[in-house]
Design a binder for these strands. Sequence first.
DNA 1: TAGATTGTTAATCGATTAACAATC
DNA 2: TAGATTGTTAATCGATTAACAATC
Lengths: 253, 253
Amino acid sequence: MATGRNHRPATRSRGIPEATVARLPLYLRALTALSERSVPTVSSEELASAAGVNSAKLRKDFSYLGSYGTRGVGYDVEYLVYQISRELGLTQDWPVVIVGIGNLGAALANYGGFASRGFRVAALIDADPSMTGRQVAGIAVQHVDDLESIIAANDVSIGVITTPGGAAQQVCDRLVAAGVSSILNFAPTVLSVPEGVDVRKVDLSIELQILAFHEQRKAAEDLSRSVSDGVRVSRARRGDQGPEGEIPAVMPA
Amino acid sequence: MATGRNHRPATRSRGIPEATVARLPLYLRALTALSERSVPTVSSEELASAAGVNSAKLRKDFSYLGSYGTRGVGYDVEYLVYQISRELGLTQDWPVVIVGIGNLGAALANYGGFASRGFRVAALIDADPSMTGRQVAGIAVQHVDDLESIIAANDVSIGVITTPGGAAQQVCDRLVAAGVSSILNFAPTVLSVPEGVDVRKVDLSIELQILAFHEQRKAAEDLSRSVSDGVRVSRARRGDQGPEGEIPAVMPA
DNA sequence: TAGATTGTTAATCGATTAACAATC
DNA sequence: TAGATTGTTAATCGATTAACAATC
């Protein structure tokens, strides 16, 4: 997969903007698809379109990595795949533990996208003794009592928390004490961690709430348009329903 | 839950920055927890800390909603819960369909955080005939052939896509044609949608890749520090392992 | 050489933050 | 009145984008 060219990358790596880092996986995915179709080169315009961003942004992003393109030609697909993979650290093997093997934990354990990019599910951990030993995604669930030794034995630095919200902070503390320094948190809890530990949060409920906000605005626009135009909107939208003042039971996460 | 006060909110709603909208659910969660502990008022400092943001940002965010606080006192918890819920559109009922009832779809169907904030799983849809009629989270799975009629019958405007990547665009097209205008996409695919349709993307693999990037940088820093200091780092980190040039099999999503 | 496309500049936009006057 | 805390201003920072000179 490595191409002939071999610039020494001259430890930039520093100073890549967060927003750019967050898009590199997007580019990588689009490039990988091109690579499988054996497309040799791609222009910023084409790649940007495949990744769903604008081409100026993509070129700017790539400029932080170095000058990997050829003017008048485009980018060498294989070469870019390698450079971005290296930049993201995906040329290494990353053992990951998942703590909390409920529905979501099990789903993640089975998720192909993890294993496919250098991430390896090294262990599954759960607090429920009846789960211990059970096979999930071909891996035996271990008890949380052994968390520290599991982390150490597998040299894990990335932990995924899929426990209920109430257990998340405690699990997080133990992971960090055991040496984990990056955490992907699916529990609906704000984790506090010492400096030097990265936490990323994925919150399904929050994503839906953001969608609802925009959906509501659309409904409000339709309504005001239909009133001002004196016509009925083609399809009833959510905003049309239900009394304005009613509040649903809002449960804590 | 509604409090006595009743400002007419004077259709602002327009012009709330995206970054603010994305934080409102965070505030709401922290406020709900306070509400359950019957805390009557909270200062921007306390609430910001609970939500994991800084207090200036929180006050700025709230200023877009209106003047809901009291100088010298703080914010009325119940009142803020209501105002934010209303702003986010959570005072309505939002029927949601989940398409693709694999591990992840099933996990989402079972996820308590959905049902708890005005979101109601109206239907589960899958393309596999052997899934049809099976109960998941107490709901019978329906076949994708009936997608359009299911959307119409339930007046669904929010769809969740948890299909494999290859099926996502097609499912998306059908959802949109049937009237869905907000989509939460878990498939590793860039969806193209007509104007007016909102898509939010949750990508588990991308989150891990971003963590890996930072983890790698930490390792590089440790290494350079240990070299320059002439000491060994206390705990081996990922960067110490594996030959630099090795590339893992990178699979398409 | 002519056409294509990168890499970079500079302008613009949006988000963050500290500081503090307003005011409870 | 004195203390506390909001709401807002203004400075700063980072991200986006169009435009185009460089160059393959």
